[in-house]
Design a protein around this nucleic acid. Structure first.
Lengths: 187, 187
DNA sequence: TTAGATTGCAAGTACTTACTTGCATAAATT
DNA sequence: AATTTATGCAAGTAAGTACTTGCAATCTAA
């Protein structure tokens, strides 16, 4: 018979368990339960746990597409699109992102997979550098300029995750760009 | 005989293994090896793995002391001390911090321990709020103002950890405060 | 020096994990 | 209708885990 269970279905379940339980905590038993299939099917399809998890992460990372991000000459608009990209990413895949960032050092094979997201970072730093060279942005390390732009989103996401009650971050892309360019001191 | 092995010595080893391998990966065998003691000693002292790891984290978190941080009326100076505090924290305990942030959701008992660091955050947001009310800082959610101030340090630390070769963040507290207040647009 | 407490060592228990094997069943292809 | 192929189920293996127990060696305080 042809396959009645799609790889996508399995990988989706695997990624979900991986994001919530971490690499070590993502047991094949739990993944099979989440996908509502037999545990043996996982091994027949993917061979071993490592292959399965890597396939799940690879598929997910492919979707981190920063299509709209490029140099247009409109500094504020470009920055807004960059921030909006990471804003959406944190909303939709925040738990995957933070899982990746904490697991990569322990799971060397994940490092390869991270190259795709890192390509996006490099692309953005090049855009920032161009605006610096034009004189629209103050000169500084482009990597520093990048983490200054989107770093708040990451910490905000983590804090919201840790303390859903009292402390809540509610950053808005437009405001972020405005303050990134003009600062917070009253004039 | 009195103890020849101090609790401190054990907790130090436990924290190191915990920070590098994560909660699940921090096996009692590995901790005992790192402390160069017998595995049984761990259980005789701390009862079980959970108690041991919690004690290690608690002791570490006690040291997150933000003594110098308070309202002085000097906005730039206060911001500098806040940034410097997290700058040092990332340098010295960055791996512990990122381990904590990723493990807390999975290990509910860690949530209690996180209250100490969160107290510091609350203290800082109150200082920021006061400067906002004075009119020295633009009004915005104090939590957002906080994550905007120190968020770049966290993302920078993570990126440096993930990609030690190409992309490197080298933020400096003084510059961070300057740009936090005045922005990056050329005037 | 003696007595009590602390440690190391060897062995073992109960549990979980990744992964395998054999067989029966069900579904799609031919 | 017959054959191929994917799946479920039951059972089992080997390894690692947290944790326990008993005993002998060792060190400190008295």
């Amino acid at each position: 018979m042809a396959r009645t269970i799609t790889d996508d279905h399995i990988l989706e379940a695997a990624l979900h368990v991986l994001a919530t339980k971490g690499y070590a905590g993502a047991t094949t038993r739990e993944i099979s339960a989440a996908a509502e299939i037999n545990e043996v099917t996982l091994f027949r399809r993917f061979g071993n746990k490592k292959n399965l998890l890597m396939a799940a992460v690879e598929q997910e990372v492919e979707n981190f597409q920063a299509g709209k991000i490029e140099y247009t000459g409109d500094l504020e608009g470009d920055l807004r699109r960059i921030v909006q990209f990471y804003y959406d990413l944190m909303r939709k895949r925040g738990h995957v992102l933070s899982m990746l960032m904490s697991e990569v050092p322990r799971q060397p094979e994940l490092a390869e997979v991270m190259q795709t997201p890192m390509t996006i970072v490099q692309k953005i730093t090049r855009i920032i550098e161009r605006y610096q060279n034009e004189g629209a942005l103050e000169k500084e390390s482009p990597v520093d300029a990048f983490v200054s732009l989107v770093g708040p989103l990451f910490l905000g996401g983590i804090i919201n995750f840790l303390q859903p009650q009292t402390l809540q971050s509610s950053l808005e892309p437009d405001e972020m760009v405005r303050r990134y360019l003009n600062g917070r001191a009253t004039k």
